[in-house]
Simulated assay, not measured.
Amino acid sequence: MSSSSARLTGRIQSTLRHFLDSEASGGIVLMGVATLAIIVANSPADDLYFRFFHVHVGPLSLQDWINDALMSVFFLLVGLEIKREMLDGQLSTWSRRTLPGAAAAGGMLVPALIYIFFNLEHEAALRGWAIPTATDIAFALGVMSLLGRRVPTSLKIFLAALAIMDDLGAVIVIALFYTAKLDFLALAGAGIVIGNLVILNRMGVKELWPYLILGIALWTLVFASGIHATLAGVMLALTIPLKRTPGTPEAPHHESPLHRLEHGLHKPVAFVIVPIFGFANAGVSFAGISRSVLMEPVTLGIAMGLLLGKLIGVLGTVAVLVKFNFADLPAQASWGQMVGTALLCGIGFTMSLFIGLLAFDDPALQDKIKIGILAGSVLAGVAGSILLSLFGRRGHL
């Protein structure tokens, strides 16, 4: 290998490690915040907790500002990561996309089918079919990071790539199935703004501020159009220019607007925005909730979709592809570790909560959704970490 190739490989590995470390740290913070929300929601301060996020600031409540506006920044980062990985990263070639892409598809299809199975007799509940299809990349990598060297880096890369493809699927699902009545005038205005963003891109404008100013206008118009406003973040991300060859891992933000913006958003999103969303939405009061709630079709469908659906969908897809030589198992990974990784894909906290809030307005039903997500995610996380720990070997890099 030439010295230039070695340097390029080193840069890619260092950048990827930095990315994984950032996501893992954010996941650990999110775990703590979610736990705190549940504690507060079941403490003497529960009434203050629930009333606080329903206080109106201007036209929206605090919770709406968090879910519709603040989370648009989260979706902007998701869009940036998807674009970078598809054009200049681990998913830049079809051969690299095959295994995580197919596994993500299987990991979305089977949980949806399991949820539908449990709720076939409850037509209104079927709207929540997409809730257990999402994988939370920060949570899953956070759990993986706690296992250290017992998990090979190849599995972390596989999980990160799968979760990014899963995010892409979730964005498409939200756009297609959770869109309200459309305002075509506002939608046309959003189209004009997107056109201007594309023109900026084609003109080679590298300053970020024109894109961000138009991004605010885009969010306003998308919000008014009936499409969920957070999708404006993804639309904006796809127009941010990307230079295919990044800079050094120490300063990738010097190379292109996309790298610069992604670098600037990682920590605020991981350590501020997502934790605020988690704290505002994870709190569920267990007062008056009996064991029978766990057996409710909605709760059970979500929990089993995350726990069993992700396991069957991800592991089954990987097994078929490897069996018929369409793909190889990640390097240095055993089948036992792959089972553990497939289980970790059942941690569906952030995106699952988000889809659940879009699917149902009824607070009582939202509580059942939260319990299902928490139960499925905790069981999947614990089972996955135990298996990865048992099958892991010291010194595996």
Rank of each mutant, 00 (worst) to 15 (best):
K206Q: 13
K206F: 06
K206Y: 07
E207P: 04
E207R: 15
E207M: 10
E207T: 13
E207I: 05
L208Q: 10
W209T: 13
W209I: 09
W209D: 06
W209H: 13
W209L: 11
W209Y: 13
W209M: 10
W209P: 05
W209C: 04
P210E: 09
P210I: 12
P210F: 09
Y211K: 07
Y211N: 07
Y211F: 11
L212G: 08
L212V: 07
L212Y: 08
L212T: 02
L214P: 04
L214V: 07
G215D: 14
I216Y: 10
I216C: 10
A217W: 15
A217V: 15
A217E: 12
L218V: 13
L218I: 08
L218E: 08
L218D: 11
W219S: 11
W219Y: 10
T220N: 08
T220D: 05
T220Y: 13
T220S: 13
L221R: 06
L221Q: 11
V222I: 15
V222S: 13
V222D: 03
A224V: 05
A224D: 15
A224L: 15
A224P: 06
A224H: 15
S225V: 01
S225F: 14
S225D: 14
G226Y: 09
G226K: 10
I227G: 12
I227H: 15
H228A: 00
H228F: 01
A229D: 01
A229S: 15
A229P: 14
T230V: 00
T230P: 07
T230M: 01
T230Q: 01
L231I: 06
L231V: 01
L231A: 04
L231C: 09
L231F: 08
L231D: 08
G233C: 00
G233Q: 14
V234N: 01
M235Q: 09
M235L: 15
L236R: 11
L236T: 04
L236W: 09
A237I: 14
A237H: 05
A237F: 03
A237Q: 07
L238Q: 01
L238C: 03
L238V: 14
L238G: 13
T239F: 02
T239S: 05
T239V: 09
I240D: 10
P241V: 04
P241A: 02
P241E: 10
P241C: 08
P241D: 02
P241H: 07
L242G: 00
L242F: 15
L242M: 07
K243V: 10
K243P: 04
K243M: 03
R244A: 09
R244W: 00
P246Q: 01
P246M: 01
P246F: 04
P246G: 02
P246C: 06
G247D: 08
G247I: 01
T248F: 12
T248A: 12
T248D: 12
T248Y: 11
T248W: 09
T248H: 12
P249Y: 00
P249T: 02
P249G: 05
P249R: 05
E250L: 08
A251S: 08
A251R: 13
P252D: 03
P252H: 01
H253Y: 05
H253T: 01
H254G: 01
H254T: 04
H254W: 02
H254E: 04
E255I: 09
E255M: 08
E255V: 12
E255D: 05
S256I: 05
P257M: 03
P257E: 02
P257F: 02
P257S: 03
L258E: 04
H259Q: 06
H259N: 14
R260Y: 03
R260N: 06
R260C: 04
R260V: 00
R260L: 04
L261E: 05
